[in-house]
């Protein structure tokens, strides 16, 4: 497994190192809840996140993007693997130690309508992290919340209001303010814009970018919208059926995708030019996403790959560094030697 993947020549500090992360959800049947199998939502995923960058995590629905994010932050207990963050293995921490680590690692959720407690005012919602860590008294909390609301572009006077009084974009800003309350280093953005209108999406993405510059944040940006990922990410990881199939910097990925799945995925992006759009070659994948409870033998993508060979159905391709900073898991993508 390749260690440091560099996007520039300057050595970068690895903020988060994920290695061999697995999350299996057990399938239980019968009266005695017999363990009959696993849904392999995340199956041996490894990557690094550098300080200050945005790592995009893309893939179709059900490929394990969200589960990866949630397992890193220990909403789900990892089945196996290591998550090294600030010299500590998050996967091995006890619950109360993990609680301390949450101060430097936060998350933004997909559905702004479900991610805010409807019975709490904005002041309570945004101030709760400060309250549970006893970081501020009531007065200071109010001040800090006002500051945070300003930071995300909301009027501080709104803090007495309740979530249902806000629009989707405003609620997402509230969620963002909450995740910023503890001054985290890393924010996992779990499809933060896919529930929003297109016009609002741009606002929120710009806000995320501004905050990143201003506060030196690092993002893991989970999304299925490839153009949005292209806009915001420094590097992109493509996931398929619980595994990362390709990981490289944004420009390389969009210019020269190596994995057949990435190629198919990118060819699905519509081009806003009718002339090109008409003649454009699209790679159409056949069949459906296999069940993660019963993944195919060999390469996960072998059932739908247009370039499938015998070896694909026998052996699982290793995830190797094909060229500096470009990792890919395919039998037919070999390092240029």
């Amino acid at each position: 497994m390749a260690e440091a993947v560099k996007t520039s020549d300057a050595p970068q500090e690895v903020l988060l190192h994920v290695e061999g992360l697995k999350k299996y959800f057990p399938i239980r049947r019968g009266v005695f809840q017999r363990h009959v199998g696993d849904v392999k939502a995340v199956d041996d995923v490894s990557f690094d996140v550098y300080r200050g960058e945005t790592l995009g995590l893309v893939g179709e629905s059900g490929c394990g993007k969200t589960t990866t994010g949630r397992t890193i932050i220990r909403i789900y207990e990892p089945t196996a693997g290591h998550v090294i963050f600030k010299d500590q293995d998050l996967a091995a921490l006890r619950a109360n130690e993990m609680r301390e680590m949450r101060r430097s690692m936060q998350m933004i959720f997909q559905d702004p309508y479900a991610s805010l407690n409807p019975r709490m005012s904005v002041l309570k919602i945004v101030g709760e992290p400060l309250e549970v860590f006893h970081l501020a008294n009531k007065e200071e909390r109010r001040e800090r919340v006002a500051h945070l609301l300003q930071l995300v572009g909301l009027n501080p006077d709104f803090m007495v209001r309740y979530p249902h009084e806000f629009s989707g974009g405003q609620r997402q800003r509230i969620g963002l303010a909450r995740s910023l309350a503890l001054n985290p280093d890393l924010i996992i953005c779990d499809e933060p814009i896919s529930a929003l209108d297109v016009s609002i999406q741009a606002q929120v993405v710009n806000l995320l970018e501004d905050l990143q510059q201003e506060l030196g944040l690092t993002y893991i940006f989970i999304a299925h919208d490839l153009s949005m990922v292209r806009h915001i990410s420094d590097r992109v990881a493509v996931m398929y059926l619980g595994k990362i199939v390709e990981l490289t910097d944004r420009d390389t990925l969009y210019a020269k995708p190596l994995h057949p799945y990435t190629q198919a995925l990118l060819s699905a992006i519509p081009v806003p030019d009718p002339v090109i759009e008409e003649t454009r070659q699209r790679i159409l994948l056949e069949g459906d996403l296999p069940s993660p409870a019963n993944p195919p033998k060999g390469c996960n993508f072998s059932t739908r790959c247009p370039q499938v060979q015998d070896i694909c159905e026998q052996e699982e391709p290793p995830f190797i560094e094909v060229e500096p900073g470009h990792l890919c898991a395919c039998h037919f993508v070999k390092p240029a030697t």
Partner: peptide, 26 residues
């Protein structure tokens, strides 16, 4: 499994407080 309960866990709210502040009132 609601997102605001997950959000509370991510923030570091303890289980009993999640139960009494976030889940039971709803």
């Amino acid at each position: 499994e609601r997102e605001y309960v997950l959000a509370a866990r991510v923030i570091g709210v303890k289980d009993t407080r999640i139960m009494f502040r976030h889940i039971l009132p709803n």
